[in-house]
Simulated scan of single mutants.
Amino acid sequence: MEIDVLPDVCASYSPGVSPAFSVDTVQFGDGYQQRRPTGLNSVRETWNVSFNNLSQDDYELVYGFLKSRQGVHAFLWQPPWEYAAKRWVCTDLTSTRPSNFQVASIQATFVEDFGL
């Protein structure tokens, strides 16, 4: 099955990334601990991405794309300074539509997806 790619609308500068580490820990009685990564994909990234100053066309393209995935269906997106796209799921989506100026903004949370 082919996976869709996030529309080519430039995200605003300085998106924030937070890696989450999945670690199995064993605690021994003398205070000693052993730790190991849980599984093959033990580091999952979460990106907070903003799209600011969007025209109505770009807003409808990006917002419609992300909303249609319903927080379930993955898509491809290439984070800044990375050389290849990865799979993501949008888990949080908010937007501001224009009131005085004819520009809109979108804030989204992308969580790395390790599905097939």
Rank of each mutant, 00 (worst) to 15 (best):
D24T: 13
A104T: 07
D113Y: 14
V43N: 09
Y13P: 02
L116A: 09
P37G: 15
A20V: 15
V111M: 06
H73F: 15
L76W: 15
I106F: 03
A84E: 04
Y83A: 12
R36N: 14
G31A: 03
S55D: 05
Q27A: 01
D8P: 09
Q33M: 13
S50L: 07
K86D: 03
P19Y: 10
A108H: 07
K86C: 03
E45C: 12
T91G: 13
G16D: 10
D30L: 07
D30G: 04
A74S: 11
F110Y: 04
V72A: 10
A74K: 12
D8G: 03
Q107G: 14
N52V: 13
N100H: 15
P37H: 14
K86A: 00
F101P: 01
N41D: 12
Y63G: 02
T94K: 10
Q70G: 02
F28A: 11
S68G: 12
S95H: 09
F21L: 15
P98I: 01
T96F: 01
T25E: 15
R44P: 03
V43E: 08
L61W: 05
D113S: 09
C90G: 06
E112W: 06
R35C: 11
F75C: 05
Q56C: 06
E112G: 06
I106T: 11
F65E: 00
S55E: 02
V89Q: 08
P80V: 00
W81I: 03
N100C: 15
Y83R: 12
L40A: 14
F75R: 01
N41I: 03
T38S: 14
E45K: 07
G64T: 02
V5K: 11
L93S: 02
L6E: 03
N48M: 02
T38P: 04
A11Y: 01
R36Y: 14
E2H: 07
R69S: 05
P80T: 00
G39I: 07
E112I: 10
V43K: 14
L61R: 11
L61I: 06
V9W: 01
C10W: 11
V103I: 04
S55H: 08
S55Q: 07
Q107K: 15
F110C: 07
M1K: 14
D57Y: 05
